[in-house]
Design a binder for these strands. Structure first.
Ligand code: FES
Ligand code: FES
Lengths: 141, 141
DNA sequence: GAAGTTCATGTTTTCAAAATCCTGTCAGTA
DNA sequence: TACTGACAGGATTTTGAAAACATGAACTTC
């Protein structure tokens, strides 16, 4: 469904909503260890999110990543589309070059229902809401 | 979502339900050309389906692949699970090692709904029913 | 302002999926 | 039997995601 990069990105963001202390930055090292994910690889992904203004960072000692007020308003959908591209939620389940109702593949009509449900989930799960859920699970392994 | 191998497999099976002439076998060449898919690679995939008795074949001149009465009763889910493994429809959307309600990730509850919808689709779409749909689209490219 | 910490970025390596190559096997035909 | 057409299957190459490596740039503290 989602690429590994994307899964790492989502888990990292969720981790930050749950464990990001107020006014205190969280380093890649801590996140990577908590999520049991390759640190250098995760760093690349977080940088991508920062470039797209979905995440904030500060350099230097006591630096790290954090979610600004603005960041907290974003949905997971934006994270997914940033890492995996918009196509993940618009492309044909059978890999056909175009996906639309005008020239649908045999599975199209039923598949779009699933896909929209997925989009729904990613949009409704505002980053800020997630911490309300049972959250230690992102770092489960 | 599904691997390329799996997409090819589904499209090939759908193609056979639509274009498989009665009592006449269809060669890999024809299928591969219709689907615009690498022939040798598709051959491998079809062989895998034959090994799992989801598809039938005969060797020699005028040989090829076809769907037996028994094959026609199978669902696309069996095709998917044969190629991509059962895990595709049971694994965690965030890539966590286990997926179940007892220790769910933050997206679990909403995700299982989508996933079950997907399974539903693959089970209900009996191979024999599909040809009723608008079918030339599998070979669109 | 020197040293150390942490994010940023470009390059390289690893690995598995995707694709190709090549030979074997079986069945039909003459 | 010999020949040909098609599937079967092992071995190899290609490709791209995933991961690791190495270096640079910004910031803090002393
Ligand atoms: S055309 Fe295949 S899912 Fe839309
Ligand atoms: S635990 Fe993540 S989807 Fe079930």
């Amino acid at each position: 469904m989602f690429s590994k990069s994307c899964q790492y990105a989502i888990r990292a963001v969720i981790y930050l909503t749950a464990h990001g202390r107020e006014g205190q930055n969280t380093g890649v090292k801590e996140i990577a260890e908590a999520l049991q994910v390759p640190q250098q690889f995760l760093a690349k992904i977080l940088q991508e999110l920062v470039r797209h203004h979905l995440l904030s960072s500060v350099k230097g000692p006591n630096g790290g990543f954090f979610l600004s007020e603005k960041n907290l308003k974003m949905s997971l959908l934006e994270v997914v589309e940033c890492i995996d591209g918009k196509a993940v939620l618009t492309s044909c389940v059978l890999g056909l070059p175009q996906c639309s109702g005008v020239n649908p593949c045999p599975l199209h009509h039923q598949f779009v229902t699933c896909r929209e449900g997925m989009r729904e989930m990613l949009v409704n799960k505002k980053i800020t809401e997630i911490s309300a859920d049972l959250l230690p699970q992102v770092s489960r392994f």
